[in-house]
Design a protein around this nucleic acid. Structure first.
Length: 681
DNA sequence: GGTGCGACCTAA
DNA sequence: TTAGTTAGGTCGCACC
């Protein structure tokens, strides 16, 4: 990790650590100093430094010394600002591992450190499966619930509720652990036949003992049996409970010690460490790729129970008529609830009522927490949304809160995120689309005229090293590394380093990769111009359009309408949100029955005009559905039944049944489409 | 022109 | 010689 080793000393590679500590576009010393210390530091070339150093009479040597001193002191200042040493020490204490191991080793090591301390007094030892055993473990079958959002602009309050530490809470509430798991129900029926598969190894249960236990077990929704805590309290529940309790204590203590800044920092580090370890405990159980003791039965049960918990919460919210609420989105442990025609104050009150109701509906310590109210907001797709956030009823000014969209991503340049954020803010505050249009057009003009800030147009992406790419990969960072190597073989970027680049104009038809330039090359060559067309049509407009198309606005048209002679007319790409066919509150549109484009009619004009194309499109769809249907295996994995005649499978949650159901729906659709084609001619 | 794949980065 | 997980969206290119 540190690349430098000194016996008896801990050597810290600050740059590598900062990659995890702060999210930045580039991790050069200057950039980190600017963002963490809020100080501008100069960067001189080696050539310049050498010149100064070698000048006669050492006239400028002090500059070189000062330059390096600034860096040394700056590094220390950065570490101090982030409380790196304090935090690492505290983590070491909380997890019970060495200081250096906090930085150098992964989260499995942390979990094991805590878990084995509890296991040993109970005379339990950990299984250590071989690589082969791990590879032969059953594949996971359960996935968290992520609802398809109703993708549109919401002018009414949307409240966001989420379960507090859901996975740890589930372990505690239902006593899910390696040490309490009896395996799958279907295996227990044959327990008298001997050992059966369990996790990476196998398990044998004495049938007589099993009979005595029959009233002291619970069965997870995916059919895995656990003993209740009166039989044996699981190690993971004990550990996680301990962690969560301690965290609550630490947080209380933080409130009491607000004056003592040093103590407060220490306590903050402590509670953060506790939170991290609680969250990765689940990851440990389902680390099927690299884990040292994964157990799919335990991991899957946690996910499946969490899913069930969220589903129950959704139905409770939607079926309580007095709230008049509608769940519009949810992911793993969160609920987004639309309250039509309610005020912000109502939202806070009702949201709290919902939290209390759902919390009461679940065993301790599962708790639904009021997170925030969005007013207004846009739900774009799964895991992508943005809104004006209020966290308390008396908060006057909202906070801009974005998840997953380009304002928080590092794979676009700053110009994109700045323009997107500004546009959304204009929309949210003024609700005036023409104001947004004016702003966007003025920014495009700036780019076209070459007045844009070049700093804002720099992309930076992580370099994976020469061996990190598939042959033929077309990646700017790799391209630049290759070019660097030609000049100086020491100048290859480090693995994990974020490599900056720009896109310049070139002759038409050239692939994008050949328009990639390093910033210093770009600056030193006056003939190079920023590729304004690329920046506008490929970077700035598409993310804007993903938001504003939901309001029925065509952002690309704004660009085309700009008074300018030499512009290139861009083609608006069809994005997922459009495909999914939002019905915005401003326009009544629907999806074309054939191509799923937005249309005012049942079938869009394009499909109407070209019947042959329609036939091809539909036939492709039909064959896809049929393939999918035929691929469904006919033996239900969880109930071992034959679900063709739905009678044999009693479990409503049976995943195969679900897939069959979907498959049948698809087949019905295929049939309808066949009829449609027949009618067409 | 559609599709599949690789690359990147984020949500949870 | 050590590594927590999966889901999801988007872009650019190669291929058919």
């Amino acid at each position: 990790m540190s690349e430098i080793h000194i016996a008896g000393r801990v050597v810290i590679n600050l740059w590598r650590i900062l990659r995890h500590e702060v999210t930045l576009n580039v991790y050069t010393f200057e950039n980190v100093a600017y963002h963490v210390l809020h100080q501008r530091e100069p960067l001189f070339s080696f050539k310049q430094l050498s010149t100064w150093y070698k000048q006669p009479a050492h006239k400028n040597r002090w500059r070189v010394i000062e330059f390096y001193l600034t860096r040394v002191n700056g590094n220390l200042a950065i570490m101090k600002q982030l409380d790196l040493i304090g935090q690492t020490s505290e983590f070491a204490r909380v997890f019970g591992i060495e200081f250096y191991h906090v930085l150098s080793r992964g989260s499995q090591y942390r979990v094991e450190s805590m878990m084995l301390r509890i296991a040993k007094p109970m005379s339990l030892i950990a299984v250590s499966p071989s690589v082969q055993q791990r590879a032969q473990q059953k594949a996971p079958e359960c996935i968290p619930l992520t609802l398809e959002p109703q993708s549109r602009f919401y002018s009414n309050p949307v409240i966001v509720l989420d379960f507090q530490s859901l996975y740890p809470s589930i372990m505690i509430a239902y006593n899910y652990c390696f040490s309490t798991c009896l395996g799958r129900v279907e295996n227990l029926a044959h327990a008298h036949e001997g050992m059966f598969d369990f996790g990476c190894t196998s398990l044998g249960i004495d049938p007589k003992q099993l009979k005595d236990l029959r009233n002291d077990i619970t069965i997870s929704p995916n059919g895995v049996v656990f003993v209740k805590s009166k039989v044996r309290r699981g190690i993971l529940p004990i550990m996680v409970q301990d962690i969560l309790n301690t965290r609550i204590m630490v947080k209380k203590s933080m409130k009491l010690n607000k004056e003592d800044k040093a103590l407060e920092r220490l306590l903050h580090a402590r509670q953060l460490g506790l939170k991290l370890i609680a969250n990765v405990t689940y990851g440990y159980t389902s680390a099927s790729f690299s884990g040292r003791m994964p157990c799919i039965e335990v991991g899957d049960s946690i996910v499946r129970k969490a899913r069930e918990t969220l589903e129950r919460a959704i139905s409770l919210v939607e079926n309580t008529k007095k709230w008049g609420a509608e769940v519009v989105y949810g992911d793993t442990d969160s609920l987004f609830i639309l309250l039509k025609g309610r005020s912000k104050e109502d939202a806070f009150r009702i949201g709290q009522e919902m939290c209390d109701a759902v919390t009461n509906d679940n065993p301790k310590p599962i708790k639904l927490k009021f997170e925030k109210v969005y007013l207004p907001c846009v739900l774009q797709t799964k895991k992508r949304y943005v809104g004006f956030m209020y966290e308390t009823p008396d908060q006057k000014e909202p906070v801009f809160d974005a998840k997953g969209i380009e304002t928080v991503r590092r794979d676009t340049c700053t110009a994109v995120s700045k323009i997107l954020e500004r546009s959304i803010k204009i929309l949210f505050t003024s609700r005036d689309i023409s104001a947004v249009r004016n702003y966007v057009q003025s920014q495009c003009k700036k780019l076209i005229d070459g007045r844009a800030n070049i700093q804002d147009c720099i992309f930076a992406k992580e370099y994976r090293g020469m061996a990190g790419y598939k042959p033929g990969a077309c990646v700017p960072a790799l391209e630049i590394a290759r070019k660097n190597l030609v000049v100086d073989r020491r100048s290859e970027p480090r693995v994990g380093e974020r490599v900056p680049y720009l896109i310049v104009y070139g002759p038409p038809g050239l692939p994008l990769i050949q328009l990639v330039r390093k910033p210093d090359i770009f600056l030193s060559d006056p003939s190079m111009r920023l590729n304004a067309t690329y920046y506008i049509t490929k970077q700035i407009l598409p993310p804007l359009n993903r938001i504003f198309a939901l309001l029925g606005v065509d952002v690309f048209k704004w660009y085309q309408d700009m008074p300018r002679s030499t512009k290139v007319a861009p083609v608006a790409p069809v994005n997922v949100a459009q495909k999914k066919g939002m019905i915005s509150q401003y326009f009544s549109t629907m999806n074309c029955a054939i191509c799923e484009e937005l249309t005012k009619n049942n079938v869009c004009d394009a499909c109407r005009r070209d019947p042959q194309n329609v036939v091809t499109t539909l036939n492709t769809k039909i064959s896809k559905w049929e393939r999918a249907f035929n691929s469904i295996s006919q033996i239900c994995a969880s109930c071992q039944g034959v679900p063709q005649d739905n009678q044999n499978c009693t479990s409503l949650d049976c995943p195969l049944l679900f897939r069959l159901h979907r498959g049948k729906q698809d087949m019905v659709k295929a049939e309808q489409y066949r009829e449609f084609i027949a009618k067409l001619f």
